[in-house]
């Protein structure tokens, strides 16, 4: 059985900084990491491999070559192969183009199931997994919080989506695309100390447009159907303000306000 985990590396948004004068992201020093939902997809694949060592896991990502050390660490925890699609001409691709690039590679490779995250913490569109489903003609479901491990075979998978409205169980014919939520318990393990320098370079494959063969106008900003015209942080205006302390006087002030506005 072969599982392909399609993942994204994202900037750590908690350490995100913005240059308000130049209106650009400060990328220097910003750490890249695996998108949390996507880490769960790999975590699940590794759980399955523990049960059945014959399972082959490939991790696929489209990213700048600088992610190689991060992919190496993923190989050091038990993933069999890392495929990085990296080409300068792909920079600036929107989700529609990104899906087409990933889809072209996936159409040439074998798999029994594709595992992804549901949502990336940077772009936050959740477009790529369903779009891959469309390109590859596969069923897809986002927000998976649990996969019944016993049911996971070559024919079908039973998954649970636990959202605020309900807990819903679905059965999908395989191959399909299962998109995990970080609310699932699956986690990408840390590299063990003894493996931290393990040489895994022979298990990494880097592909460029030479292999995928898109025409220039089909990819990157040019090929995209959406374009970021402007990015900015929102500024909020503050009106006339009353500032008080959390003492009796403060309580009185708030109470008076609540009465005046008829909340009490």
């Amino acid at each position: 059985m072969k599982l392909v985990c399609v993942v994204k590396f994202v900037p750590d948004v908690d350490r995100f900084e913005y240059d308000h004068e130049k209106h650009v992201l400060i990328r220097e020093g910003s750490r890249m990491m695996i998108n949390p939902d996507d880490g769960c997809a790999i975590g699940f694949a590794l759980e399955m491999k523990k049960r059945n060592p014959e399972i082959f896991i490939e991790v696929l990502t489209m990213a700048p070559a600088s992610v190689v050390p991060l992919v190496e660490d993923i190989l050091r925890v038990g993933v069999d192969q890392g495929t990085i699609i990296s080409d300068r001409s792909y920079a600036g691709s929107d989700s529609w183009v990104t899906s087409r690039i990933l889809g072209r590679y996936l159409a040439t490779t074998e798999y029994d199931c594709i595992l992804t995250g549901s949502q990336a913490i940077d772009g936050d569109t959740s477009h790529v997994p369903p779009q891959l489903g469309e390109i590859l003609g596969l069923g897809q479901i986002s927000g998976i919080t649990k996969v019944e491990e016993d049911s996971f075979g070559s024919e079908s998978a039973v998954v649970e989506v636990d959202d605020e409205e309900a807990v819903t169980t679905y059965e999908l014919n395989l191959p399909a695309i299962l998109s995990f939520s970080r609310k699932s318990k699956c986690r990408l393990p840390h590299v063990r100390f003894k493996d931290r320098k393990k040489d895994v370079t022979d298990r990494i494959k880097v592909l460029s447009n030479d292999e995928l063969g898109f025409a220039k106008g089909e990819v990157g900003l040019k090929g995209s159907l959406t374009k970021v015209a402007k990015a900015y942080t929102r500024k909020y205006e503050s009106g006339a303000q009353l500032r008080v302390a959390a003492d009796d006087n403060g309580v009185e002030t708030v109470l008076k306000f609540l009465k005046e506005k008829r909340f009490l």
Partner: peptide, 22 residues
Amino acid sequence: TAAGKMLAPRVAMKINCGLVAD
């Protein structure tokens, strides 16, 4: 919605149309 977020990207891909989320 959860379903709409899975539906719209598929439609966009099928009709070759850009899609803006949220």
